[in-house]
Amino acid sequence: MRPRLPAWPAVPPEQDGVRLRAFRDDDVDTVLDLAGDPRVAAVSTLPEGADEPAARAWIARQHRRWAEGAGFSFAVAEGATDRAVGQVGLWLDRWAEGVGTVGYLVAPCARRRGVATRALRAVTAFAATLPGLDRLELFVEPGNTASLRTAQRAGYRRVDVVPHPRRAGDEPVPMVRLARRLPGTAAPRG
């Protein structure tokens, strides 16, 4: 059984014009935009080309992540409009070791505007408020230079390349592991 997670944040974490909030039913258009990118399907549970019912099922799964103890799955929303433009997750299956894992998706309509960097900074700041976490890890495909730059801009440093399964049952694939220590903790371990 997974440990009980802290309460969902009463005040949504924000950073430089992005807000991390719970997904809503009206975020389905953003999820459909995400589903149009085959790279998203390769690293998430959202099927490529998902239709509206599949997008709504994905949103429902994001709501269950916290209730099931897996972690926090936030919609990344524009601060000014509250329109969802992506997703960022803080996964806590290694919380007992002091390690969390983060990941992010940005809808094609919102890319190249710094949304991923700001969302990653916001989730990192939120993670720093959780007791017992001393570092975060992030896994990126070696050829995804944009995502590697995003992680580095948010203060993550490259640790190594490790086999990392994308989905249960799939063959492990090489992924660059990046890490960041949280304030007041020792340097990231490999």
Rank of each mutant, 00 (worst) to 15 (best):
A186P: 12
A122D: 09
R153F: 00
G79W: 03
V176F: 09
I59P: 03
V161W: 05
E14I: 05
R39K: 12
A50N: 10
T45S: 15
R94W: 07
E78F: 01
A41Y: 05
D160Y: 02
I59V: 11
A57T: 07
F126L: 15
P163N: 04
V88K: 04
V88R: 02
P131A: 15
F72Q: 02
A77W: 02
A187L: 13
N144F: 04
L5R: 11
P131D: 15
L178S: 01
P12Q: 09
E48L: 14
R56E: 05
G103L: 06
E48G: 13
R158P: 00
W95L: 12
R189P: 14
V31K: 08
V28E: 08
L34W: 12
M175N: 04
E78T: 05
P108L: 08
M1E: 11
D93N: 14
V28C: 10
P174E: 08
V102A: 01
P174D: 11
A77S: 09
A77G: 04
P131Q: 12
W58A: 06
A151W: 01
L34R: 06
L20T: 09
P47W: 10
I59A: 00
A77Q: 07
A50V: 04
R111M: 09
P53V: 14
R181D: 11
E14D: 10
D29E: 15
L105P: 02
